[in-house]
Simulated scan of single mutants.
Amino acid sequence: MIEAVKFWNEPNNKSHWDLQLDPEWTAYAAMVKLAADAVRAENPALTQVLGGISPIDAGFMTRLREQGVLDRLDAVAVHGFPLDWNNWMIDEWPSRIAEIEAVTHLPVWVTEVGVSTFGAEEVQVFGLERTAKLLIGRVPRVFWYSLYDLPKAWPATTRHREAEGSSYYRHFHMGLLREDGSPKLACELFPRYTPDLGICQWFHFEDHRLDDAVSWLKRLGVRRLRTGLSWADSFRPNCDAWFDRQMRALEDFDVTVTFCFTPEHRGIEPHHTSPPQQAEEFAEFCARMVRRYAPGVASKRHGPSGPALHAQSGGALTL
């Protein structure tokens, strides 16, 4: 079921990693190396991917390579939204990929790409068609962001100025489906590009959309799904019950799981973007999730909370 794990989301984006606390990314680099080693010990065959970078920055990738991070990984990832936030044109996608390929020996995945319907649904249709033509076959994995519009009652915060891409009102219009679950124009076209084109859909804790999302993903012919398991959520009551429910619901897909979000009480500062006080704790969370949902050898293990879900990598979940 789980084909890959990712370490964090957009670590070079100040809205996802506190660059004032870690301006040279030394804490991030150390955290990823510990997490990668911990995951490798649990399942050596599991593909490990660097958190998707945004902006696409060869200098940042070089910095991580020089700190030995890429030596631990199997792929790197980039995110791009040229019709909404980035200051480059959509036809530049091949050259943006090439910039990263030039500074690493690893495959480059595109784990978030999308177009909002803020101005018109026809813009998203154009963006979907153009993106598919430019990226399918050019990179090993492409994930469209996203299935659903972000509910307007949910937060979407940013630390960017407007000129840096802070038009987060567009963030609420990135889905193929509206908040109420009704399809947009691009939704009708999406099956033309599956299963080559995957979908990135984040699920909040006890997300009410989970079951409907699974139905839509299957209807659209999606095989590859990117989602997340939140370290911060792991401290909520009944967290394992939610994680189990989420992962069981997604067992028919090839899932790329992103591990991210610092618990406020475990950060240097009380914020989900903060580097952790102890990087080993993030590594332990990653290892526990792999042990629970993608162990290297099928086994039955019992923890303090009772029997856990287990599967061989690529297999079905069992109790």
Rank of each mutant, 00 (worst) to 15 (best):
L197M: 13
V5P: 00
L177F: 02
I199C: 01
G165F: 04
T47Y: 07
H173D: 14
M1L: 11
V103D: 01
S54Q: 12
Y148T: 00
V297R: 14
T131L: 04
A75F: 01
E121F: 04
P275Y: 04
R96G: 11
T318C: 10
F243L: 08
H302K: 14
C187S: 14
L210H: 03
R292Q: 13
D244C: 04
P191Q: 04
V115G: 00
A36Q: 04
Y28W: 04
A249P: 03
A241C: 10
E122P: 01
N43W: 08
A36G: 11
H160G: 01
F235E: 07
V142M: 03
T258G: 01
H105R: 15
S146L: 02
A287P: 02
D74T: 06
R292F: 03
S166L: 10
V123D: 14
D240H: 09
D22T: 07
S15H: 06
R130T: 10
A232F: 03
Q124H: 12
L189M: 13
W144L: 07
E10C: 13
V5L: 06
Q48E: 13
E3I: 15
N12M: 08
F118H: 15
G68F: 11
Y148G: 00
V255W: 01
S54Y: 09
P155E: 07
W93M: 11
F285P: 06
L135D: 00
E10S: 07
K218P: 06
L229T: 02
I56E: 04
V5Y: 00
H310T: 15
F81E: 02
S274Y: 04
